[in-house]
């Protein structure tokens, strides 16, 4: 279980999130919705450990704030959070010049799936097998294979970047995934393939999914078990998947 308790997040002196309690169970899809500036993306970054976001426990100072399957992660660096099985699919993936996608994915695979494994893995793929596996995944996302030879996110279109985040997610195979507005700037076909891919892998691997989104449309293909509405840094509403549809019809304002 991904568990968040009394989460307070500041950027500089400004409080962005003011006491969030949230849980995501294995295999569960939880949607976080809310208007611009409500603190949705801050929630994603704070969980993943971005240094710009200072987190603290609003009620019990020095007590834990975020746990993954019982392990506290709010006091460790982003790489160690990744090792606990956390993956953030970014809204704005950054480019790394000269690091090819192929090379990056292979290093990520070795690091997180072979080296991090506590027991010897007999199913570890060789480089050749891995390349083939990546090509299959790339095709399944309707992503051009040529991208694999290019620098990571360098000159990629918005849609290509988002699909590449999902490709990384598939290679990484986390226990919990956060999708930060993965649907923004996507056409209908790209949205569909991304949402369906996540829905399928989450079900197969029993991943917990936290979907941060502005719109209901991604939830048509990636069904949310629960929906939470954020406003001004607080959870103002929570409910079943139906809540997302209501928001779609009447907007955030009318739900006050």
């Amino acid at each position: 279980m991904l568990k968040i308790k009394n989460l307070l997040v500041k950027v500089g002196e400004k409080v962005i999130l003011n006491g969030i309690d949230l849980t995501v169970k294995s295999g569960e899809v939880v949607a976080v919705m809310g208007p611009n500036g409500s603190g949705k993306s801050t929630l994603a970054y704070a969980i993943a450990g971005h240094p710009k976001y200072q987190t603290s426990n609003k009620k019990e100072k020095n007590n834990w704030i975020i746990k993954i399957d019982g392990e506290r992660i709010d006091d460790i660096s982003p790489d160690l959070r990744a090792k606990e099985g956390l993956f953030l699919a970014n809204q704005y993936p950054v480019a790394i010049f000269g690091l090819t996608v192929n090379s990056f994915l292979w290093q990520m695979y070795k690091k997180n799936r072979i080296a991090a494994s506590k027991t010897p893995r007999n199913d570890a793929m060789s480089l050749v097998e891995f390349r083939k596996y990546v090509e299959e995944l790339t095709n399944s996302l309707n992503l051009n294979l040529d991208l694999l030879k290019r620098s990571l996110n360098d000159g990629f279109s918005g849609g290509e970047k988002k699909k590449l985040e999902i490709l990384q997610l598939l290679v990484f195979c986390p226990k919990y995934v956060i999708l930060d507005e993965i649907d923004s700037g996507l056409d209908v076909d790209a949205l569909k393939v991304i949402a369906q891919t996540v829905a399928k892998v989450a079900k197969e691997k029993k991943m917990g999914v936290l979907v941060i989104t502005h719109y209901n449309r991604i939830l048509k293909y990636l069904k949310a078990d629960r929906v939470i509405v954020l406003e001004k840094g607080k959870i103002v509403k929570s409910g079943t998947g139906k809540l997302a549809e209501e928001i779609e019809v009447s907007g955030y304002k009318n739900n006050d």
Partner: peptide, 13 residues
């Protein structure tokens, strides 16, 4: 910071 965070969130120190 963004580049470092991006790569670190993929498990690299």
């Amino acid at each position: 910071e963004e580049q470092l965070f991006y790569l670190m969130s993929r498990g690299f120190d």
